[in-house]
Every structure is written in structure tokens, then in C-alpha cells.
């Protein structure tokens, strides 16, 4: 399953996109994120998937544009820590 966590508002689309088939819940991205945007938990969208999986925390889901801002400088943008940390390429950002 492809899970889009985030939102679209008039200024743009801010989604963290997770491929749940690729995510093994290792939590490397959670450790890489300094802002506490990600967590490992039980998938609430798939009752038959019992292994832990990465989720975007409720606290940050509706303000990703701001929460992720510091990892997205206007110029000289480095690779995103959370995306780079994932060994399976399960994570991406829409913006």
C-alpha cells in the first residue's frame, strides 16, 4: 500500500509517502529525523498487517510544510535525512 501522510493546501502539496510493502519498521528514518515527525507503530490502515511500520505522527501530519522546513533550505538542498536513512527506499516526499 502507498500511504500519503500530509495534506494539500493553497500553497502546495506536502505529503510524506510511504510504501508499506517496502517498509520493514526498522526505524532508521525515525532516528534520522531530528524533529520527531516519524514514529514506528502498528498500521492503523491495515488491520491484517501486524508487524510494526513507520507512521507520520499525528502532531506533525498537518504541518509538514513547517516541520520539515529545516531539512529543506531554499538553496543548496542536501539529501533528506529520513529518505536517505531508509535502506529499502520506502520513503519519499512530494515537495
Amino acid at each position: 500500500m502507498i500511504a500519503h501522510y500530509g495534506y494539500k493546501d493553497a500553497s502546495g502539496e506536502y505529503f510524506i509517502i510511504l510504501d508499506t510493502e517496502k517498509c520493514d519498521g526498522c526505524g532508521a528514518c525515525v532516528d534520522a529525523c531530528r524533529w520527531g515527525v516519524l514514529e514506528v507503530g502498528v498500521d492503523p490502515n491495515n488491520p491484517f498487517h501486524e508487524e510494526p511500520i513507520v507512521l507520520v505522527t499525528e502532531e506533525h501530519r498537518n504541518k509538514l510544510k513547517y516541520s520539515c522546513a529545516q531539512c529543506k533550505p531554499v538553496s543548496d538542498r542536501p539529501p533528506l535525512p529520513c529518505v536517505s536513512a531508509c535502506p529499502n527506499g520506502a520513503l519519499s516526499h512530494s515537495w
Partner: peptide, 12 residues
């Protein structure tokens, strides 16, 4: 203020 500050941090 939170929203403005996050924008400031994007430019350093």
C-alpha cells in the same frame, strides 16, 4: 510565529 520562523530557517 511558528510558521514564520520555519520559513526563516529555510533561508538560514
Amino acid at each position: 510565529s511558528d510558521r514564520i520562523v520555519s520559513m526563516v530557517r529555510r533561508i538560514g
